[in-house]
Design a protein around this nucleic acid. Structure first.
Lengths: 234, 234
DNA sequence: CGAACTGTTGAGAGGCTTCAAGCCTAGTGG
DNA sequence: CCACTAGGCTTGAAGCCTCTCAACAGTTCG
């Protein structure tokens, strides 16, 4: 069940903190800030869904989203999680195609929307920006290709360990070594292509082996070194 | 066992047939043709391997290559096959990283090498080219993301059917409806993340169901409609 | 406080890999 | 051009991993 909530307008935020925009000059930044629209999105909101034609990029100022694809059989594959500082939706916009993924809020988000024409202007006029953008896409392609290797040939046990490590690296730990990001078991399952039951069994096993501790959805990483080993990371 | 064969120089070929270069003007094309180096590579040759630092792109004038990654445990994951008209190696070059994949010849190849500085010049000076390049990378990213869905949640049976359909679409059929590309069972296995035995059993099953016919490594597609259905393609 | 969703556990079944052994084909060298 | 050999192909049996189904406990939120 998807709940769509009308975003509330917020004051426009400063985009200069985004890595992608670091090579822009002051004039370009202020132009960007002028042309953006910033909104607040509640938990579970769908930012865009598969098949829509997007008119620009979204920049994540705050919060966490999941990007996923739907399958024929009703299942879901999570492609990635996006957080503060990330840009989403650029692939389908640049290809001028309909989106084939859905973006949904996991943790309340503040997003800035940038129209395509603004981006196109930068692509045409700022050569550092365009090279940077190319590199961002290439980097995501590398990750995607690597993920194919993992997901194909690793066991559920390895994949769960890897997912925990990746979530740690992307979202960090709090003081008590808990993963900052809170995800449902089903979301973990959709990330690694398993089932909630499979996730639970593996997490319980990790808990018994003193690799992690569980308290509701909170996951505390106890033995990160061993977890990395189990993940069989290169 | 990898056999490395010194490439033999060939006359330089015309690059204007490559889709990526369609927006270049005559002067740019002739400059490109001037700065390229074209060589012949025998079967099994390794063009570049994981960990190398590449100085430019390779354009496939003729022949077929496989691009794959190595895993810790000695296994291989084939990322894609490249054929005439394709450009390879651009991702790591654009990211200015070491390659994390290996390119190896399946069918005798003629490749043109283009130095990075030539590409960079085009990125800086031809805005249509740079947008085009962005779109090429985005397209590959889309395919890669889609493949993650497939490979995660499909059965070997579905994946083999899908692989056959994709090979048909990319490399075509001869007069007798045989796949033009000849691959080993182990290569098919490395493509979909299975084992040679798994591939063989599935192919035999397809043969019994009159979907395909087998003659050595030649695979004849008999019932493409049904095969597509088995592949469960969207 | 209750309903709906999420998490947990167990049993069972099935698909796939692994291992082993023999056949066949393609490519090489004489 | 032919014979040989190594690598690829094929088949069978065994066992394991993981999914599915089902029932129940726990949690969250209106």
């Amino acid at each position: 069940m998807i709940i769509i909530i009308e975003p509330q307008k917020e004051v426009n935020l400063d985009l200069s903190k985004f890595h992608l925009f670091k090579d822009l000059n002051e004039k370009e930044i202020s132009q960007l800030n002028l042309e953006q629209t910033t909104s607040l999105y509640k938990k579970e909101s769908v930012i865009y869904s598969s098949g829509s034609q997007l008119k620009g990029f979204y920049c994540v100022n705050r919060g966490i989203l999941k990007l996923y694809k739907n399958r024929n059989d009703g299942k879901i594959q999570i492609i990635s999680f996006a957080k503060e500082g990330d840009i989403i939706a650029y692939r389908s916009v640049l290809s001028e195609e309909l989106t084939c993924s859905t973006a949904q809020v996991i943790e309340e988000c503040v997003l800035s929307f940038l129209p395509y024409k603004t981006i196109l202007y930068l692509i045409q006029n700022n050569w550092q920006f365009r090279l940077h953008l190319l590199q961002v896409v290439c980097e995501e392609l590398r990750e995607s290709n690597n993920y194919i290797i993992d997901i194909t040939q690793k066991s559920v046990r390895e994949l769960v360990a890897e997912a925990l490590i990746l979530l740690k690296e992307n979202f960090g730990l709090d003081n008590a070594n808990n993963l900052r990001i809170i995800v449902k078991r089903a979301e973990l399952a959709n990330l690694i292509g398993s089932t909630p039951e499979g996730i639970i069994r593996t997490l319980s096993e990790f808990k018994q082996s003193q690799l992690i501790d569980l308290q509701g959805r909170k996951i505390k990483l106890i033995n990160i070194r061993e977890l990395t080993k189990v993940a069989n990371l290169v």
